[in-house]
């Protein structure tokens, strides 16, 4: 990472820490992920020392938590006018887009780190496969990054944070449910089979579940990386188009 991107990441990350956003995110994520694990995931009743009940709820928590982080990435800059300051500094649009994303993703990583006591707990209670748990953490962080990149691209296209939040949440939900009948059945009425198969393969849940079970498949990593890249490219295009529109 070059120095200017690093400086921008630091400023963005400190910006989170100087507002209630970071505290809100860390507390809500920790409480929700643990509560869902115990009360809905039947953590104790299963009598298995693993974190599968813990990770299975992460995409659903991210569904509203990540758009809440992502909605301000660009909307707030344009609404307050600080984009005019930021984008006239000697930095490229790509550096700013990447830095904003990395700072947000880092914050989501911190939220995940807050749950490490869960990992320690299962090691005390039994003898879990720590490799599977580590893959679970990586896959969870990749899902949050994917949702954040999508939210970033939506945030760059509107000054209204509420609109950014709602549109981002809907897009993330559709991506999450892409392989499920809820999305596939309406599409099946109009689209050919190859398109339905293609959409089914886009489901975040399919790729996440595979990784959360401890199966580290390069195609899953590539899937998340490609979606993040696509989200960031769309963010960059949105910011550049604003300069010209």
């Amino acid at each position: 990472m070059n120095t200017k991107t690093g400086l921008l990441v630091r400023r963005e990350f400190q910006g989170y820490l100087q507002t209630p956003i970071a505290m809100f995110l860390l507390v809500i994520f920790s409480v929700l992920s643990v509560a869902l694990t115990f009360y809905i995931g039947n953590f104790f009743e299963r009598e298995i020392a693993d974190l599968r009940p813990f990770f299975q709820f992460h995409p659903w928590i991210y569904l509203f938590l990540v758009p809440a982080v992502g909605m301000r990435l660009w909307s707030e800059e344009y609404r307050s006018g600080s984009a005019e300051l930021l984008l006239t500094l000697p930095v490229t649009t790509a550096q700013v887009v990447l830095a904003k994303f990395l700072a947000g993703w880092l914050l989501l990583g911190c939220a995940l780190l807050m749950t490490v006591p869960m990992w320690i707990s299962v090691n005390i209670l039994g003898d879990p496969d720590n490799g599977v748990i580590l893959t679970g953490y990586v896959s969870s962080w990749l899902v949050s990054g994917t949702f954040l990149a999508i939210s970033s691209s939506v945030s760059a296209s509107t000054q209204n944070q509420v609109v950014a939040f709602i549109v981002s949440a809907v897009l993330c939900f559709m991506l999450l449910m892409a392989g499920w009948p809820l999305v596939l059945e309406p599409v099946a009425l109009l689209a050919p089979q190859w398109l339905i198969d293609g959409i089914a393969r886009l489901s975040v849940l399919v790729h996440f579940s595979s990784m959360a079970r401890g199966v580290l498949d390069g195609r899953d990593v590539l899937y998340f990386t490609a979606l993040m890249f696509l989200g960031l490219i769309m963010t960059w295009a949105s910011v550049e188009m604003k300069k010209a529109s």
Binding site: R11, T19, S80, G81, S82, T88
Partner: peptide, 14 residues
Amino acid sequence: LGYLPEGAPMYPEM
């Protein structure tokens, strides 16, 4: 160049 945009927008939390 150095630029002061209209309304001097900055980052209020900093």
